[in-house]
Amino acid sequence: MFSSHDGLCSIGELAEHLGVSVKTVRFYSDRGLLPEASRSAGGHRRYGPDAVQRLGMIRSLRGLDLPLPDVRSMLDELDARGDQEGAGAGGALEDAVAGRLRGLGAELAALRWREAALRLVQECPAAERPARLRLVGAVTAPPSTAPLARSWRAWLPPRMPARSVTAFLEAAVPAPPDDPRPAQVLAFARLHAFVTRPCGGAGADAGQPRAHGVAGTRAPAVLYAGLAEAYDLAGAELRRGAAPAPGEALDGFVDAYASTYGTRDTPAFRRVLAERLADDPRIDRYWELTAAVISAPGGPPEPTPGSAHDWLFAALEEQSRATGHGGARPPVTSA
């Protein structure tokens, strides 16, 4: 391949053969990725024919923006198998490519978020831009949901099992969309401001609802597990546009409280529960913003735990009024 008597080439010849700079070849040689075959009498580097394939492999890997440590691992793996061309590239290459794909996914998500944020600022009236910039500038790209989760963790009852806390956070903390619209960026930024404002987050302002005031280490987990099931059922009703009404969702909702209190589901209990829920603090703004973050463009709002709760509470109030003068319904068996 090389015309010299010893079959070796200089660093300049190798660089010219691959169409790269001498500086590039020296860089990879100095880092041990491209071993020299020997040195000339004058101390100049000499490379063998296999350096062409090796440097080509290095360029291909670096062209995919794989970091040098990953390139080194792959070359070491190829050396161990005697596979200079990389035809049987194994685990190191697969791991590096998978890791780079994950990294690119995060980078693309950040770019899409920044693009939507810039459009949001660009499209708003000039007088509103400074405030809009401060609002969206307080959110990382891609945005972190950690502040929202912290707010809810502070609000949840102490000694809640980790599994129950995780399940609640999955329902209460909206995941930022991968390809957001400017309106979704605005909603998430406002949600972030809502939970990080100096006077406290969603949970700090509201406190535990009076209706949740039950004793016992298992009580919160039992209550929230039952409410999650009821909210799922109510969410299905909301998606099909159903008006609040008695049914399986409401029965599960009431049974969650009755089971936690250790009592039976009766018309009288439902009336008392409706009164307690009516007095509890509300965080409607949080759920409105959450729905704006997760809803598809042009479509109906996606159900949230907040909107599901409102639907169930409306159904409970209507039924309590209807049975307030002696009306009866079959009791629900406590779980």
Rank of each mutant, 00 (worst) to 15 (best):
L101V: 15
H17L: 15
A116H: 11
G82N: 02
L312G: 09
A175I: 05
K23Y: 00
S73W: 04
A131S: 07
A296V: 07
Q53W: 07
A206G: 09
E302V: 10
G105Q: 03
A187S: 11
S10P: 00
R134N: 07
A236T: 04
S10M: 01
S334H: 03
A314E: 14
R39L: 08
V139G: 02
R31N: 06
V222Y: 04
P267I: 05
G241L: 05
T304H: 12
P158F: 09
P331C: 00
L33F: 08
R129K: 04
E317G: 01
R153H: 04
R129C: 00
R329P: 12
L233P: 14
R132S: 10
P176M: 13
A256I: 06
T304A: 15
A234M: 08
T290S: 13
R329N: 13
H17Y: 09
T260G: 07
A106E: 07
A96V: 02
D205Q: 06
F194K: 04
G299M: 08
L227M: 14
P198K: 06
P125I: 03
V52K: 06
D65K: 01
A335I: 00
G7I: 00
D232N: 08
V25A: 08
R153F: 01
A225E: 09
L156T: 03
L101F: 09
D50Y: 12
I58L: 13
G216C: 01
H325G: 03
A187M: 09
V97R: 09
H309Q: 10
R264G: 04
P220W: 03
P174G: 09
S4L: 06
E302S: 10
R190P: 04
S259I: 06
R276S: 03
Y47R: 14
R134A: 10
R114F: 01
V20H: 10
P244S: 04
V222P: 07
L111F: 08
I11G: 10
S29M: 13
D232C: 09
G306Q: 03
R271S: 15
D79K: 08
A296D: 15
R59G: 04
R153W: 01
D30R: 15
A41S: 01
R150E: 14
D95K: 07
A154M: 11
E248P: 01
I283Q: 14
L312P: 12
A131K: 01
A162D: 07
A171M: 11
E36K: 14
D79A: 14
V222F: 05
P281S: 00
